[in-house]
Design a protein around this nucleic acid. Structure first.
Lengths: 202, 202
DNA sequence: TTTTACCCTTAAACTAGTTTAAGAAATAGG
DNA sequence: CCTATTTCTTAAACTAGTTTAAGGGTAAAA
Protein backbone atom coordinates (compact mmCIF):
# COMPACT_ATOMS: atom_id res chain seq x y z
CA UNK A 1 0.00 0.00 0.00
CA UNK A 2 1.43 3.33 -1.07
CA UNK A 3 1.85 6.07 1.49
CA UNK A 4 0.15 8.55 -0.86
CA UNK A 5 -2.93 6.34 -0.94
CA UNK A 6 -2.92 6.00 2.82
CA UNK A 7 -2.72 9.76 3.17
CA UNK A 8 -5.89 10.72 1.33
CA UNK A 9 -8.07 7.64 1.63
CA UNK A 10 -10.79 9.33 3.71
CA UNK A 11 -11.45 11.94 1.01
CA UNK A 12 -11.55 9.43 -1.84
CA UNK A 13 -13.83 7.20 0.22
CA UNK A 14 -16.06 10.22 0.73
CA UNK A 15 -16.18 10.98 -3.02
CA UNK A 16 -16.93 7.34 -3.77
CA UNK A 17 -20.07 7.46 -1.65
CA UNK A 18 -21.39 9.62 -4.54
CA UNK A 19 -19.83 8.12 -7.70
CA UNK A 20 -17.12 5.56 -8.52
CA UNK A 21 -13.70 6.91 -9.57
CA UNK A 22 -10.99 5.44 -11.83
CA UNK A 23 -7.41 4.87 -10.60
CA UNK A 24 -6.15 7.67 -12.83
CA UNK A 25 -8.75 10.08 -11.46
CA UNK A 26 -7.88 9.15 -7.91
CA UNK A 27 -4.19 9.79 -8.61
CA UNK A 28 -5.01 13.18 -10.09
CA UNK A 29 -7.11 14.13 -7.08
CA UNK A 30 -4.41 12.94 -4.70
CA UNK A 31 -1.80 15.03 -6.50
CA UNK A 32 -3.86 18.15 -5.87
CA UNK A 33 -4.67 17.95 -2.17
CA UNK A 34 -2.75 18.56 1.04
CA UNK A 35 -3.09 17.39 4.60
CA UNK A 36 -2.82 19.52 7.72
CA UNK A 37 -3.03 19.15 11.51
CA UNK A 38 -4.62 21.74 13.77
CA UNK A 39 -4.25 22.36 17.48
CA UNK A 40 -7.24 23.08 19.69
CA UNK A 41 -8.37 26.68 19.06
CA UNK A 42 -6.11 27.08 16.04
CA UNK A 43 -7.65 29.21 13.26
CA UNK A 44 -7.74 28.14 9.63
CA UNK A 45 -9.34 31.42 8.53
CA UNK A 46 -9.98 34.77 10.20
CA UNK A 47 -12.15 37.76 9.35
CA UNK A 48 -10.65 39.63 6.39
CA UNK A 49 -8.85 36.59 4.93
CA UNK A 50 -9.68 35.29 1.49
CA UNK A 51 -10.86 31.66 1.77
CA UNK A 52 -8.65 29.85 -0.73
CA UNK A 53 -9.36 26.21 0.20
CA UNK A 54 -12.15 23.70 0.53
CA UNK A 55 -11.44 21.89 3.80
CA UNK A 56 -12.48 18.29 4.50
CA UNK A 57 -12.40 17.14 8.12
CA UNK A 58 -10.64 13.80 8.68
CA UNK A 59 -10.59 13.98 12.49
CA UNK A 60 -11.85 16.49 15.05
CA UNK A 61 -14.45 19.27 14.97
CA UNK A 62 -14.24 22.75 13.48
CA UNK A 63 -16.63 25.67 13.56
CA UNK A 64 -17.44 28.44 11.07
CA UNK A 65 -18.48 31.59 12.89
CA UNK A 66 -19.24 35.24 12.22
CA UNK A 67 -18.83 38.28 14.43
CA UNK A 68 -21.72 40.74 14.79
CA UNK A 69 -21.30 44.54 14.92
CA UNK A 70 -21.15 44.45 18.73
CA UNK A 71 -18.25 41.97 18.61
CA UNK A 72 -20.10 38.79 19.61
CA UNK A 73 -19.29 35.48 17.92
CA UNK A 74 -22.10 33.38 16.38
CA UNK A 75 -21.60 29.82 15.15
CA UNK A 76 -22.87 29.35 11.61
CA UNK A 77 -22.00 25.66 11.41
CA UNK A 78 -19.92 22.82 12.82
CA UNK A 79 -17.99 20.28 10.75
CA UNK A 80 -16.86 16.97 12.25
CA UNK A 81 -15.40 13.84 10.61
CA UNK A 82 -16.23 13.45 6.87
CA UNK A 83 -17.75 16.90 6.57
CA UNK A 84 -16.68 20.02 4.67
CA UNK A 85 -16.01 23.51 5.95
CA UNK A 86 -15.22 26.71 4.06
CA UNK A 87 -16.44 30.30 3.71
CA UNK A 88 -18.35 29.72 0.49
CA UNK A 89 -18.91 33.44 -0.16
CA UNK A 90 -15.26 34.41 0.15
CA UNK A 91 -14.14 31.31 -1.78
CA UNK A 92 -16.28 31.92 -4.85
CA UNK A 93 -15.83 35.66 -5.02
CA UNK A 94 -12.11 35.36 -4.10
CA UNK A 95 -12.63 38.38 -1.87
CA UNK A 96 -11.88 38.92 1.84
CA UNK A 97 -14.67 37.36 3.88
CA UNK A 98 -16.28 38.04 7.23
CA UNK A 99 -16.13 34.50 8.55
CA UNK A 100 -13.75 32.62 10.81
CA UNK A 101 -12.87 28.94 10.89
CA UNK A 102 -11.44 27.46 14.09
CA UNK A 103 -10.65 23.98 15.38
CA UNK A 104 -12.66 23.27 18.53
CA UNK A 105 -10.77 20.03 19.14
CA UNK A 106 -7.28 19.04 17.92
CA UNK A 107 -8.08 18.16 14.31
CA UNK A 108 -6.77 16.81 11.05
CA UNK A 109 -7.98 18.09 7.67
CA UNK A 110 -7.48 17.64 3.93
CA UNK A 111 -7.47 20.79 1.84
CA UNK A 112 -8.02 21.53 -1.84
CA UNK A 113 -6.81 24.93 -3.02
CA UNK A 114 -9.04 26.96 -5.31
CA UNK A 115 -6.90 26.61 -8.45
CA UNK A 116 -6.51 22.87 -7.82
CA UNK A 117 -10.26 22.45 -7.45
CA UNK A 118 -10.86 24.28 -10.73
CA UNK A 119 -8.21 22.12 -12.38
CA UNK A 120 -10.00 19.03 -11.07
CA UNK A 121 -13.40 20.29 -12.28
CA UNK A 122 -12.00 20.67 -15.81
CA UNK A 123 -10.28 17.28 -15.88
CA UNK A 124 -12.88 15.27 -13.97
CA UNK A 125 -16.29 16.70 -14.92
CA UNK A 126 -17.87 14.11 -12.65
CA UNK A 127 -16.73 16.30 -9.75
CA UNK A 128 -19.20 18.97 -10.84
CA UNK A 129 -21.92 16.42 -10.23
CA UNK A 130 -20.44 15.34 -6.88
CA UNK A 131 -20.16 18.88 -5.55
CA UNK A 132 -23.59 19.73 -6.93
CA UNK A 133 -25.02 16.91 -4.81
CA UNK A 134 -22.91 17.79 -1.75
CA UNK A 135 -24.10 21.39 -1.95
CA UNK A 136 -27.71 20.26 -2.38
CA UNK A 137 -27.41 18.11 0.75
CA UNK A 138 -26.00 21.00 2.73
CA UNK A 139 -28.72 23.27 1.36
CA UNK A 140 -31.38 20.89 2.68
CA UNK A 141 -29.83 20.90 6.16
CA UNK A 142 -29.65 24.69 6.16
CA UNK A 143 -33.24 25.06 4.98
CA UNK A 144 -34.41 22.81 7.80
CA UNK A 145 -32.46 24.97 10.22
CA UNK A 146 -34.09 28.14 8.86
CA UNK A 147 -37.49 26.53 9.32
CA UNK A 148 -36.58 25.68 12.91
CA UNK A 149 -35.37 29.22 13.53
CA UNK A 150 -38.54 30.89 12.30
CA UNK A 151 -41.04 28.36 13.68
CA UNK A 152 -39.73 26.97 16.98
CA UNK A 153 -38.87 27.94 20.54
CA UNK A 154 -35.29 27.61 21.78
CA UNK A 155 -36.24 24.42 23.61
CA UNK A 156 -37.56 22.82 20.42
CA UNK A 157 -34.47 23.92 18.50
CA UNK A 158 -32.19 22.36 21.11
CA UNK A 159 -34.18 19.11 21.06
CA UNK A 160 -33.95 18.99 17.26
CA UNK A 161 -30.19 19.62 17.39
CA UNK A 162 -29.75 16.99 20.08
CA UNK A 163 -31.67 14.38 18.08
CA UNK A 164 -30.15 15.22 14.71
CA UNK A 165 -26.53 15.55 15.87
CA UNK A 166 -26.24 13.47 19.08
CA UNK A 167 -22.52 13.18 18.52
CA UNK A 168 -22.00 16.95 18.39
CA UNK A 169 -24.51 17.59 21.19
CA UNK A 170 -22.52 15.49 23.67
CA UNK A 171 -19.08 16.36 22.32
CA UNK A 172 -19.27 20.16 22.19
CA UNK A 173 -19.26 22.62 25.10
CA UNK A 174 -22.72 24.09 25.71
CA UNK A 175 -21.43 27.59 25.03
CA UNK A 176 -20.72 26.53 21.43
CA UNK A 177 -24.14 24.93 21.06
CA UNK A 178 -25.90 27.99 22.50
CA UNK A 179 -24.07 30.19 20.00
CA UNK A 180 -25.23 27.90 17.17
CA UNK A 181 -28.84 27.95 18.38
CA UNK A 182 -28.87 31.74 18.74
CA UNK A 183 -29.45 31.82 22.51
CA UNK A 184 -27.33 32.62 25.56
CA UNK A 185 -25.49 29.83 27.41
CA UNK A 186 -27.48 30.80 30.52
CA UNK A 187 -30.76 30.13 28.79
CA UNK A 188 -29.52 26.83 27.37
CA UNK A 189 -28.57 25.84 30.90
CA UNK A 190 -32.15 26.58 32.00
CA UNK A 191 -33.60 24.59 29.10
CA UNK A 192 -31.43 21.59 29.92
CA UNK A 193 -32.42 21.74 33.58
CA UNK A 194 -36.11 21.83 32.67
CA UNK A 195 -35.70 18.91 30.27
CA UNK A 196 -34.00 16.76 32.92
CA UNK A 197 -36.68 17.66 35.51
CA UNK A 198 -39.40 16.91 32.95
CA UNK A 199 -37.92 13.45 32.43
CA UNK A 200 -37.38 12.52 36.09
CA UNK A 201 -40.89 13.66 37.07
CA UNK A 202 -42.41 10.75 35.14
CA UNK B 1 -38.90 34.00 -34.47
CA UNK B 2 -40.39 30.62 -33.60
CA UNK B 3 -43.18 30.41 -31.08
CA UNK B 4 -41.32 27.68 -29.22
CA UNK B 5 -38.36 30.01 -28.80
CA UNK B 6 -40.61 32.79 -27.62
CA UNK B 7 -42.17 30.47 -25.10
CA UNK B 8 -39.07 29.51 -23.15
CA UNK B 9 -36.76 32.44 -23.76
CA UNK B 10 -36.66 33.58 -20.12
CA UNK B 11 -35.30 30.22 -18.96
CA UNK B 12 -32.65 29.98 -21.68
CA UNK B 13 -31.64 33.57 -20.98
CA UNK B 14 -31.30 32.60 -17.34
CA UNK B 15 -29.08 29.59 -18.14
CA UNK B 16 -26.95 31.72 -20.43
CA UNK B 17 -26.09 34.06 -17.57
CA UNK B 18 -23.99 31.09 -16.36
CA UNK B 19 -22.65 29.44 -19.54
CA UNK B 20 -23.27 29.76 -23.31
CA UNK B 21 -25.46 27.07 -24.94
CA UNK B 22 -25.52 25.70 -28.50
CA UNK B 23 -28.67 25.78 -30.65
CA UNK B 24 -29.04 22.02 -30.39
CA UNK B 25 -28.77 22.15 -26.60
CA UNK B 26 -31.37 24.92 -26.46
CA UNK B 27 -33.75 22.86 -28.60
CA UNK B 28 -33.28 19.86 -26.33
CA UNK B 29 -33.96 21.94 -23.23
CA UNK B 30 -37.04 23.50 -24.85
CA UNK B 31 -38.41 20.08 -25.75
CA UNK B 32 -38.30 19.07 -22.08
CA UNK B 33 -40.01 21.96 -20.32
CA UNK B 34 -43.57 23.14 -19.92
CA UNK B 35 -45.20 26.44 -19.18
CA UNK B 36 -48.02 27.06 -16.71
CA UNK B 37 -50.13 29.95 -15.42
CA UNK B 38 -51.24 30.26 -11.80
CA UNK B 39 -54.00 32.26 -10.21
CA UNK B 40 -53.48 34.22 -7.01
CA UNK B 41 -53.44 31.74 -4.10
CA UNK B 42 -53.25 28.71 -6.37
CA UNK B 43 -51.08 25.89 -5.01
CA UNK B 44 -48.40 24.16 -7.03
CA UNK B 45 -47.59 21.73 -4.21
CA UNK B 46 -49.20 20.83 -0.90
CA UNK B 47 -48.06 18.96 2.20
CA UNK B 48 -47.84 15.24 1.39
CA UNK B 49 -47.25 15.68 -2.35
CA UNK B 50 -44.08 14.47 -4.00
CA UNK B 51 -42.33 17.45 -5.62
CA UNK B 52 -41.74 16.27 -9.20
CA UNK B 53 -40.71 19.55 -10.86
CA UNK B 54 -38.15 22.29 -10.71
CA UNK B 55 -40.15 25.49 -11.16
CA UNK B 56 -38.73 28.68 -12.67
CA UNK B 57 -40.71 31.89 -12.15
CA UNK B 58 -41.28 33.92 -15.32
CA UNK B 59 -43.76 36.37 -13.81
CA UNK B 60 -45.26 36.85 -10.34
CA UNK B 61 -44.22 35.76 -6.84
CA UNK B 62 -44.52 32.36 -5.16
CA UNK B 63 -43.77 31.21 -1.64
CA UNK B 64 -42.49 27.94 -0.19
CA UNK B 65 -43.88 27.42 3.29
CA UNK B 66 -44.05 24.78 6.00
CA UNK B 67 -46.68 24.14 8.65
CA UNK B 68 -45.64 23.65 12.28
CA UNK B 69 -47.22 21.09 14.65
CA UNK B 70 -49.69 23.71 15.91
CA UNK B 71 -50.89 24.35 12.35
CA UNK B 72 -49.22 27.71 11.71
CA UNK B 73 -47.68 28.51 8.32
CA UNK B 74 -44.07 29.72 8.10
CA UNK B 75 -42.52 31.10 4.91
CA UNK B 76 -39.24 29.40 4.07
CA UNK B 77 -38.58 31.43 0.93
CA UNK B 78 -40.07 33.62 -1.79
CA UNK B 79 -39.36 33.32 -5.51
CA UNK B 80 -40.06 36.19 -7.90
CA UNK B 81 -39.12 36.69 -11.58
CA UNK B 82 -36.04 34.68 -12.70
CA UNK B 83 -35.85 32.67 -9.53
CA UNK B 84 -36.36 28.97 -8.80
CA UNK B 85 -38.74 27.30 -6.37
CA UNK B 86 -39.11 23.64 -5.38
CA UNK B 87 -39.13 21.41 -2.33
CA UNK B 88 -35.56 20.20 -2.71
CA UNK B 89 -35.92 17.47 -0.06
CA UNK B 90 -39.00 15.89 -1.59
CA UNK B 91 -37.64 16.30 -5.13
CA UNK B 92 -34.35 14.47 -4.52
CA UNK B 93 -35.73 11.74 -2.33
CA UNK B 94 -38.86 11.41 -4.53
CA UNK B 95 -40.84 11.07 -1.30
CA UNK B 96 -43.88 12.99 -0.02
CA UNK B 97 -42.69 16.28 1.46
CA UNK B 98 -43.88 18.61 4.18
CA UNK B 99 -43.72 21.81 2.17
CA UNK B 100 -46.26 23.84 0.23
CA UNK B 101 -45.80 26.07 -2.79
CA UNK B 102 -48.36 28.77 -3.49
CA UNK B 103 -48.65 31.73 -5.86
CA UNK B 104 -48.96 34.97 -3.90
CA UNK B 105 -49.70 36.94 -7.08
CA UNK B 106 -51.11 35.68 -10.40
CA UNK B 107 -47.99 34.06 -11.85
CA UNK B 108 -46.46 32.35 -14.83
CA UNK B 109 -43.87 29.58 -14.46
CA UNK B 110 -41.74 27.19 -16.49
CA UNK B 111 -41.41 23.65 -15.13
CA UNK B 112 -38.92 20.84 -15.67
CA UNK B 113 -40.10 17.41 -14.56
CA UNK B 114 -37.69 15.20 -12.63
CA UNK B 115 -37.13 12.64 -15.41
CA UNK B 116 -36.64 15.43 -17.95
CA UNK B 117 -34.09 17.13 -15.74
CA UNK B 118 -32.16 13.87 -15.35
CA UNK B 119 -32.34 13.37 -19.12
CA UNK B 120 -30.92 16.85 -19.58
CA UNK B 121 -28.13 16.26 -17.04
CA UNK B 122 -27.04 13.17 -18.99
CA UNK B 123 -27.16 14.85 -22.41
CA UNK B 124 -25.89 18.28 -21.42
CA UNK B 125 -23.30 17.74 -18.65
CA UNK B 126 -22.79 21.51 -18.55
CA UNK B 127 -26.11 21.67 -16.70
CA UNK B 128 -24.49 19.91 -13.74
CA UNK B 129 -22.15 22.88 -13.53
CA UNK B 130 -24.98 25.39 -13.94
CA UNK B 131 -27.12 23.87 -11.21
CA UNK B 132 -24.08 23.44 -8.97
CA UNK B 133 -23.51 27.19 -9.19
CA UNK B 134 -27.21 28.03 -8.79
CA UNK B 135 -27.37 25.86 -5.66
CA UNK B 136 -24.18 27.46 -4.30
CA UNK B 137 -25.69 30.92 -4.78
CA UNK B 138 -28.85 29.91 -2.96
CA UNK B 139 -26.76 28.29 -0.22
CA UNK B 140 -24.95 31.60 0.34
CA UNK B 141 -28.25 33.48 0.68
CA UNK B 142 -29.55 30.90 3.13
CA UNK B 143 -26.37 30.98 5.20
CA UNK B 144 -26.62 34.76 5.47
CA UNK B 145 -30.20 34.34 6.62
CA UNK B 146 -29.18 31.82 9.29
CA UNK B 147 -26.54 34.27 10.52
CA UNK B 148 -29.19 37.00 10.71
CA UNK B 149 -31.54 34.69 12.58
CA UNK B 150 -29.03 33.74 15.27
CA UNK B 151 -27.33 37.12 15.65
CA UNK B 152 -29.91 39.88 15.10
CA UNK B 153 -33.06 41.39 16.55
CA UNK B 154 -36.29 41.32 14.53
CA UNK B 155 -35.78 45.00 13.66
CA UNK B 156 -32.32 44.30 12.20
CA UNK B 157 -33.65 41.30 10.28
CA UNK B 158 -36.41 43.40 8.76
CA UNK B 159 -33.96 46.15 7.78
CA UNK B 160 -31.70 43.56 6.14
CA UNK B 161 -34.64 42.06 4.24
CA UNK B 162 -35.81 45.51 3.15
CA UNK B 163 -32.37 46.48 1.87
CA UNK B 164 -31.61 43.16 0.22
CA UNK B 165 -35.00 42.59 -1.42
CA UNK B 166 -36.57 46.07 -1.82
CA UNK B 167 -38.77 44.71 -4.58
CA UNK B 168 -40.26 41.97 -2.38
CA UNK B 169 -40.42 44.23 0.68
CA UNK B 170 -42.73 46.68 -1.07
CA UNK B 171 -44.59 44.13 -3.15
CA UNK B 172 -45.57 41.57 -0.51
CA UNK B 173 -48.17 41.93 2.27
CA UNK B 174 -46.54 42.43 5.66
CA UNK B 175 -48.13 39.26 6.97
CA UNK B 176 -46.06 37.28 4.46
CA UNK B 177 -42.89 39.16 5.40
CA UNK B 178 -43.51 38.65 9.13
CA UNK B 179 -43.93 34.92 8.53
CA UNK B 180 -40.61 34.88 6.65
CA UNK B 181 -38.82 36.78 9.42
CA UNK B 182 -40.22 34.52 12.14
CA UNK B 183 -42.23 37.21 13.96
CA UNK B 184 -45.92 38.11 14.29
CA UNK B 185 -47.49 40.64 11.92
CA UNK B 186 -48.35 42.74 14.99
CA UNK B 187 -44.72 43.00 16.00
CA UNK B 188 -43.65 43.84 12.45
CA UNK B 189 -46.23 46.62 12.48
CA UNK B 190 -44.62 47.98 15.66
CA UNK B 191 -41.14 47.78 14.17
CA UNK B 192 -42.24 49.67 11.07
CA UNK B 193 -43.90 52.35 13.17
CA UNK B 194 -40.72 52.81 15.24
CA UNK B 195 -38.57 53.00 12.10
CA UNK B 196 -40.76 55.71 10.57
CA UNK B 197 -40.79 57.68 13.83
CA UNK B 198 -37.01 57.31 14.08
CA UNK B 199 -36.67 58.81 10.60
CA UNK B 200 -39.12 61.70 11.00
CA UNK B 201 -37.67 62.71 14.37
CA UNK B 202 -34.43 63.83 12.67
C1' DT C 1 0.72 19.54 41.89
C1' DT C 2 -0.89 23.92 41.62
C1' DT C 3 -2.59 27.42 38.95
C1' DT C 4 -5.13 29.37 35.39
C1' DA C 5 -8.47 29.56 32.22
C1' DC C 6 -12.54 27.88 30.83
C1' DC C 7 -17.15 26.10 31.46
C1' DC C 8 -21.56 25.43 33.73
C1' DT C 9 -25.16 26.84 36.90
C1' DT C 10 -28.47 29.81 39.53
C1' DA C 11 -31.22 33.65 40.25
C1' DA C 12 -33.13 38.32 39.93
C1' DA C 13 -34.15 42.21 37.09
C1' DC C 14 -34.80 43.42 32.53
C1' DT C 15 -36.06 43.54 27.33
C1' DA C 16 -37.79 41.47 23.14
C1' DG C 17 -41.46 39.38 21.10
C1' DT C 18 -46.45 37.11 21.46
C1' DT C 19 -51.30 36.93 22.23
C1' DT C 20 -55.78 38.56 22.16
C1' DA C 21 -59.12 41.58 20.67
C1' DA C 22 -61.16 45.19 18.21
C1' DG C 23 -61.37 48.65 14.75
C1' DA C 24 -59.55 51.05 10.42
C1' DA C 25 -57.66 50.92 5.82
C1' DA C 26 -56.82 48.92 1.56
C1' DT C 27 -57.71 45.77 -2.35
C1' DA C 28 -59.58 42.09 -5.43
C1' DG C 29 -63.03 41.00 -8.09
C1' DG C 30 -67.98 40.70 -9.21
C1' DC D 1 -68.68 51.18 -8.47
C1' DC D 2 -69.61 48.47 -4.51
C1' DT D 3 -68.93 44.94 -1.28
C1' DA D 4 -66.48 41.17 0.89
C1' DT D 5 -62.29 39.86 2.28
C1' DT D 6 -57.83 40.62 3.38
C1' DT D 7 -54.49 43.35 5.48
C1' DC D 8 -52.71 46.71 8.84
C1' DT D 9 -52.72 49.01 13.28
C1' DT D 10 -53.08 49.86 18.38
C1' DA D 11 -52.86 48.59 22.98
C1' DA D 12 -52.78 45.80 27.20
C1' DA D 13 -51.46 41.59 29.39
C1' DC D 14 -48.44 37.90 28.91
C1' DT D 15 -44.25 34.70 27.88
C1' DA D 16 -39.70 33.80 26.04
C1' DG D 17 -35.16 34.99 26.18
C1' DT D 18 -31.19 38.31 27.92
C1' DT D 19 -28.25 40.50 31.18
C1' DT D 20 -25.65 40.88 35.11
C1' DA D 21 -23.39 38.97 38.79
C1' DA D 22 -21.63 35.57 41.72
C1' DG D 23 -19.96 30.95 42.83
C1' DG D 24 -18.54 26.19 41.89
C1' DG D 25 -16.53 22.52 38.97
C1' DT D 26 -13.20 20.78 35.70
C1' DA D 27 -9.53 20.26 32.41
C1' DA D 28 -5.20 21.98 30.45
C1' DA D 29 -0.77 23.53 31.19
C1' DA D 30 3.03 25.27 33.94
Amino acid sequence: MYFSVMKSTPLIAHFETYLPFEEVEISLIESRISRRKLKRREHLLVNGDICRHYTFVVKGVLRLYGIDPSGKEHNILFAAENDWIYDITSFHEAKPGESNIQAIEPSEVIQIAQQDLYHLYVNIPKLDRVFKVITEEKYVELQNRVFQNISSTAQQRYTYFYEKYPNLATRLPNTQIASYLGITPEFLSMIRKEMVQGKTKK
